[in-house]
């Protein structure tokens, strides 16, 4: 009944407003349609729109978006370097494509597996990636990953971080690299023996050392003091993951206000907020954001998007 009343009022209002509108039209030139047109200006976020590299405005991330023809299953960008993990095509396997800010291809690295994580150092120099080689879920048993790093300045390429652990156990896997400001130190996840450790690596020295247990998909804050990551609930990935922040100096862990399970490598939007993807039941992802200090609540930052990266 109330809906009908509303409809009636709407219909009535429509007639009255239409009359007003026609009166206005007669007095002036027909105004142009005012639907917003034009591109994205100002500071931007890079996202994927169902696999196509896109940008939205930082100040209006729900507004218009620029959608390119570049296809990526996972992407990241910093300081004019775009890392795009291209999907497997009908006639070719997947690859890492390093693009410049105008999306011109600078270099490609052939890769095998399902693209999963990508990261670029803040300077734009270092690029890292993770693909699933066997299995496809961090919650399942028996998966294996392939994680590599490319130095875009020197061309130095490490196709598997497992090379950094010569005497590793057979079940050793790496995933989710994040770089420090010196473009040499990095953090990543190393799993072995049923545990997932935060490791700190030294690219030049080709070494890694364990820092903390139960840290996956680390992401170093812009100020270099904290690691945002996903923490397996009670150490059991099959129970899901809680988005958390580790203070590297005090080793204090802060669970964030996002209480749903998050299976993503978070991205810092600035020193205060992180962004991450969550998938809906129909396979469409949204980029969410939550404060990095455990306060506040999660909210949608970019609808129907994933793989967020802040651009300048």
């Amino acid at each position: 009944m109330t809906t009908r009343t509303r409809l009636a009022i709407t219909a009535l209002a429509a007639i009255l407003l239409a009359a007003v509108a026609v009166g206005y039209t007669k007095l002036s030139a027909a105004p142009e349609s005012n639907v917003a047109a034009g591109g994205v200006i100002g500071p931007r976020l890079q996202v994927l729109s169902n696999g196509r590299l896109s940008t939205v405005s930082r100040t209006d991330p729900c507004g218009p978006r620029e959608v390119s023809e570049q296809l990526c299953d996972r992407a990241y960008a910093a300081a004019g370097t775009v890392a795009c993990l291209r999907p497997v095509g009908a006639l070719k396997s997947g690859e890492l494509a390093v693009l410049d800010a105008e999306l011109h291809e600078q270099r490609t690295v052939p890769l095998t597996g399902f693209p999963n994580r990508a990261r670029v150092s803040a300077s734009g120099r270092m690029v890292a990636w993770t693909l699933f080689v066997d299995g496809h879920s961090y919650a399942a048993n028996g998966f294996s990953t392939s994680t590599g790093i490319l130095d875009t300045r020197t061309g130095a390429l490490v196709t598997s971080l497992e090379e950094f652990v010569p005497d590793r156990a057979a079940d050793t896997n790496f995933w989710g690299v994040t770089f420090a400001a010196d473009d040499n130190r990095f953090y990543a996840t190393m799993s072995t023996g049923g545990h997932r450790y935060l490791v700190e690596g030294d690219f030049a020295a080709r070494s890694v050392k364990p820092v903390q247990d139960n840290v996956e998909c680390p992401s170093l804050s812009p100020d270099g003091t904290r690691i945002a990551y996903k923490a397996a609930i009670d150490g059991d990935p099959q129970r899901g993951w809680r988005l958390s922040v580790l203070d590297l100096a005090t080793k204090r862990i802060t669970p964030l206000a996002e209480t749903r399970s998050v299976d993503d490598q978070p991205a810092w939007l600035d020193d205060h907020d992180v962004a991450y993807g969550i998938q809906r039941g129909d396979g469409v992802n949204d980029v969410w954001t939550v404060p990095a200090d455990g306060t506040g609540s999660a909210r949608v930052l970019v609808p129907e998007a994933n793989s967020p990266a802040p651009l300048g």
Binding site: A36, G38, G39, S49, P64, E66, E304
Partner: peptide
């Protein structure tokens, strides 16, 4: 959603409006 020939790479899927026009073409 709508598309706009004057902003050929832009998506307006989250807009509260959908427009049609002959010039520029929407």
């Amino acid at each position: 959603t709508f598309v706009d020939s004057s902003a050929a790479g832009t998506n307006y899927g989250t807009s509260g409006q959908i427009g049609v026009d002959g010039s520029p073409t929407k």
